[in-house]
Design a protein around this nucleic acid. Sequence first.
DNA 1: GGCGCTAACTATCAAGCGATAAGCAAGACT
DNA 2: AGTCTTGCTTATCGCTTGATAGTTAGCGCC
Lengths: 224, 224
Amino acid sequence: MATPKPKPKAPRRRLSADERERLIARGAVAYFCEVGFGGQTRELARRLGITQPLLYRYFPNKEALIDRVYQEVYLNRWDPRWEELLDDHARPARERIIAFYRDYAKAVLSYEWIRIFMFSGLRGMNLNNRYLTLVRDRIYTRVIRELRLEHGLPTPAQLPISEMEFELVWGLHASIFYLGIRKWIYGLEIPENVEALIEGLTTAFLDGVPAVMTRMAKKPRRRS
Amino acid sequence: MATPKPKPKAPRRRLSADERERLIARGAVAYFCEVGFGGQTRELARRLGITQPLLYRYFPNKEALIDRVYQEVYLNRWDPRWEELLDDHARPARERIIAFYRDYAKAVLSYEWIRIFMFSGLRGMNLNNRYLTLVRDRIYTRVIRELRLEHGLPTPAQLPISEMEFELVWGLHASIFYLGIRKWIYGLEIPENVEALIEGLTTAFLDGVPAVMTRMAKKPRRRS
DNA sequence: GGCGCTAACTATCAAGCGATAAGCAAGACT
DNA sequence: AGTCTTGCTTATCGCTTGATAGTTAGCGCC
């Protein structure tokens, strides 16, 4: 090439502080999701089309930026209607549970959510645990309660939920979450029709788990 | 403290090249499993009780060290007897599948395996995919074959294994693998008696999945 | 259309980190 | 005991990277 082209150099654009901060936060989510929290501030700035020191005008340091990423991803991902949905006794339990997982999957099986969740887990954050406790207390308990009700087993008030029952529900949860891992962490293809898939997994769960639950409710727990 | 203590400085120990290399490799596995591949060579050396440049006498660069970590963790983790176990028609299919997953879990639910698997996935390595293809071809196909046989469904030769069948088995796999994620990535407690847990999960699977499989074999596949 | 506020940039520091070069010393062999 | 091999260390380079200081210029306002 004859033209050395000194620099493309986009014209300096001046945004309001709020707007720029949001832009940086969004960009940080996208960037750190992709490369992990070891990603460099210079590369993040480059992707945002700004200079690296500008980041430090909006965030005191890199850690603050990462905290913001957590906030962006973790907050506002919980839909309170999930609990209502699971409580709605007008519909059959089976239908409710399938509907819930269909909806839950839509919220959670995203690139950002799955990867941030993994990265923060590997980093030793306890945000994961806080979230998973929420899932356990708000969702698993409801699923188990409804299953017990449907199969004429004692209510959780009468007989506390056993470890095994929690584990079985966690197994369903895992099989759905793992779809996200396969897609967004391993980079594998998963079936196009995720809804049908979740319906199949949940159906298999609903067909298989009550038998185990019933068996465990009758037999005393065997110690290893 | 009155004693400034200039340096503990362990006496220089001279090992054979082979021995030292193995030591470094082992240490690298432990270190990179813990902190990820962004870990620093200096810190690794410190943990090994050697100086950092010594690493470069045994490995040309950090990447080679990481490759070695992959080798150490991925290789020799596959037990060919798993396939034999699943093929052993002297035992009931249910018993074989439970026995397999009990054994498989023992091999795979380790700190090193789980974390390296995640780190390499997040890094975009395709080693995961190679491994998972192996699992699919050697294990899932066998599980499905045996389940079909037990429930009077066509053999895979007569009717190819459907996507949904693979997905259901992948669901079982996920629910077991997720135990490792919970323990070694999220840092959560999991039940002590993992064997009983796996038995419960597999039983629920075996009770629930055939119904779905039978249904799908009879009904034509519904498109979304 | 000039002026001021401040968003954004240029330049740079200091610590961190992968990697290399040259010298030292532990153990083996005679 | 002397010496030779080579495992291991000290010293250091050069680039990277988070963070700071000082300068420039876009936009609103009168």
